[in-house]
Structures are given as C-alpha cells and as structure tokens.
Design a protein around this nucleic acid. Structure first.
Lengths: 106, 106
DNA sequence: CGTGTAAGGAATTCTGACACG
DNA sequence: CGTGTAAGGAATTCTGACACG
C-alpha cells in the first residue's frame, strides 16, 4: 500500500541499538512484541530488526505504560486508529471516483 | 554543522544488515573503512554501526571499484568533493554577510 | 501485569594473518 | 591491490522459565 518504504520504515536496527535509542530494556521491547504492539522483522539467523518508526512507536508505548495504561488497552487504541485510517482512506478514494465518474445512486 | 542528523545519517545499522542491503562482503566493507572511505561508529562492545547514507556511499564505492578505480583515487575524489562543498558554503555565507552589512573593501 | 534475571545455546562481529596475484 | 578464508575470542541475541506482586 505504501510506496518506497523510505528510511523511516525500513527494518534494519537490531535490538541492542533500539535499547540504546529508547532507553528500554530488551525484556520490555520483546514483551511489547509478545503483546502485539510492535512487529519487528527477523534476519535469517533469527535476530529482530526494527525501523525508526518502530522506535518512535516504542517510546509512545513506554509513555502510556508509565501512565498506567495496560498493553491490552494500547492494543485496542492501535486497532481503532488503524480502522479509522482505513475508513478515511476509503472515503477519499470514493471521493476521487465520484469526482471522475460522477456520483451514482445504487 | 548539520542540524538534526535525521534518519538518513544516524549510525544504527550493524554490518550484517549492511551486507544484506549492499550485497558486499563484510571483508569488503571493513576494507573500505581501512582505506578511509567510510567511517562507521562503534557500539560500546566494539561493533560497527552504519547509516543509510553510509550504505549509499558504499554502493557508489563498489561501483567505482568495479570500474577499475582504486581506493586511493576514490579517496582523492571524496576529499575534493568535500573541499568544494566547503568553499561553496563559505562563499554563500559571505554573500549573506555582504547582503546584510554591505560589501567592504578591506 | 509488566519486568528482572540466570541459563544455555546459537548467531554475530572483531582482529590479525596467510594466500593469491 | 582488493578480497577470500580459517582461527579464536568476545559481544550479541534468542527462547523458555522462575520470581515478584
């Protein structure tokens, strides 16, 4: 859906560097993955690879957890955000189509 | 001199990933460093860390070497390019100063 | 629930050197 | 000159589990 997958979204950062960049422990980083909040890729050898976007997301997650939000709730928020974004995207595509071909009732 | 050191210039990629991304061998990547063509940072443990900019530079280097250019020559080219960029930058700053305070002879 | 930790193993990376040419 | 490789060691990462609360 996205196009070039620029620097920000390329999964190229190992967990040790992520630890340094976020200040989180590896345990925390892995746990958030277990709770489906973050989705690193893997090298052929099995090591996790993260993107800069992942790092930013991790910091947001950590902040919420400090505020007492549970991982389950954070997951719900993320689901909702994705659903809304999809809806908006579809609405815009529909708008484009209507503009080009005219609005049609049924 | 640069400002935010955005994603592209942040040294966060380990050599294994660089190998995958560039298709070069680790031997080659380390050798180009030995020849002062590339300057990775290091983790506390001593592992090399590269940026996306480094990766692009590595691919340019590899191309030149395939064309028969020697590392020494590549190094000279890079030096020249840096010198030219610095000159241009200084010229522009000088222009700014002149525009604000007027041109002064001595 | 979220995180620390010790455990054992596997994958990763490092350096210095020999080889070829 | 540029690169491959075997060598030995050190740093990194992985998983599953026990602990606390």
């Amino acid at each position: 859906m996205a196009k070039e997958a620029s620097y920000k979204d390329k999964k190229v950062i190992t967990i040790g560097i992520v630890r340094e960049l976020t200040g989180l422990s590896e345990r925390q980083i892995r746990y958030y993955e277990e709770r489906k909040l973050i989705f690193p890729e893997r090298t052929s050898g099995g090591s996790r690879k993260y993107s800069f976007a992942d790092i930013e997301l991790l910091m947001e997650i950590a902040e919420k957890i400090e505020d007492g939000v549970q991982t389950y709730e954070i997951r719900q928020e993320m689901k909702k955000k994705n659903a809304d974004a999809t809806k908006l995207r579809n609405k815009m595509i529909q708008g484009q189509l209507n503009a080009q071909f005219g609005t049609r009732k049924r």
